[in-house]
Amino acid sequence: MRLRNIPRAEGVLEACKEVVKNPAGQKSRWHELFQNQNPVHIEIGMGKGQFLLTLAERNPDINYIGIERYSSVLLRAVEKFQLLSESPKGAPSNIRFLCMDARELPEVFAPGEIEKIYLNFSDPWPKARHARRRLTSREFLSLYAKVLPPGGTVEFKTDNRPLFDFSEEEVRESPFFTLDGLTYDLHRDAGMNQGNIMTEYEEKFSAAGNAICKLIARKSPSGSEG
């Protein structure tokens, strides 16, 4: 899918202090940027930002970083953040934004610097020749293993069953992760759905009657970081 270029995106992101301009310069120093020692969680492919902004509001003792590859997509989340900033309640202070490719994670975060990674309704890349581009492929799992500590988790949600089945198999075959939780119908699974925050896509797909799948992968204590 071709993304529509939004000319003003670069200027808006440059002017927003919550958008980190030199993320590689923060490697091993993210706690300094947040000015606390709270755990850091990231969402890769944050879309319009509803999921991560809600998490940040509900959990002030956790630092959140939203990652998008394209400025035109990240713009939507930043604009939503700015609207919150102008409201009486204000926007959460425990959130930052990055415009970067997820393949650069080890260049931006030190080993163990991230405790949890969220992947929500990621691009399925349905053609077999593009399987390595899927954010739950073994190539990406090996990258996540480099920045998560032992016991750190990856949480993945989708309504795309072929992508979910692929992701489950990739986790089961990974030397870095074990499958810690799985459901094929999240909203009917009382245990897995507890505390669930819906994304914009999740609201749309579930309203259309689509079952939402979710898995949790936990980094093995003995797993190599690659």
Results as ranks from 00 to 15, higher is better:
Leu215Trp: 06
Thr153Phe: 05
Glu170Asn: 15
Ala208Asn: 09
Phe140Ser: 05
Ile212Gly: 04
Asp123Pro: 01
Ser122Lys: 03
Lys214Tyr: 13
Glu173Pro: 00
Phe164Arg: 10
Tyr118Arg: 08
Phe164Ile: 09
Glu107Lys: 11
Tyr144Ile: 00
Ser174Val: 04
Asp185Val: 01
Met198Glu: 13
Arg132Asn: 06
Tyr201Ile: 06
Glu170Arg: 14
Pro149Asn: 11
Leu163Ala: 08
Ala131Gln: 15
Ala207Val: 12
Asn193Pro: 00
Tyr201Lys: 11
Gly195Val: 02
Asp123Phe: 01
Ile216His: 01
Arg129Glu: 09
Glu169Ile: 09
Pro175Lys: 05
Gly112Gln: 03
Phe166Trp: 04
Met192Cys: 02
Arg218Glu: 14
Gly152Met: 12
Pro150Gln: 12
Thr178Met: 08
Thr153Arg: 13
Ser122Gly: 07
Lys157Ala: 06
Val108Met: 01
Val108Asp: 01
Leu179Cys: 13
Ala217Gly: 11
Gly152Asp: 12
Arg129Pro: 02
Met198Thr: 05
Glu139Val: 07
Thr158Gly: 03
Gly112Val: 01
Phe121Ile: 00
Glu203Leu: 10
Leu141Glu: 09
Ile197Arg: 03
Phe140Thr: 03
Asn210Arg: 13
Lys157Cys: 03
Leu186Phe: 10
Phe140Leu: 14
Glu168Ala: 12
Glu173Cys: 05
Asn196Leu: 00
Lys116Phe: 07
Leu215Ala: 11
Gly181Phe: 00
Ala211Asp: 04
Asn193Phe: 01
Arg129Cys: 08
Phe156Ala: 00
Leu215Cys: 02
Tyr184Ile: 01
Phe177Cys: 01
Thr158Lys: 10
Gly151Ala: 14
Arg129Ile: 07
Gly151His: 08
Glu203Tyr: 11
Thr183Gly: 06
Ile117Gln: 03
Ile117Pro: 07
Asn210Gly: 02
Asn193Arg: 10
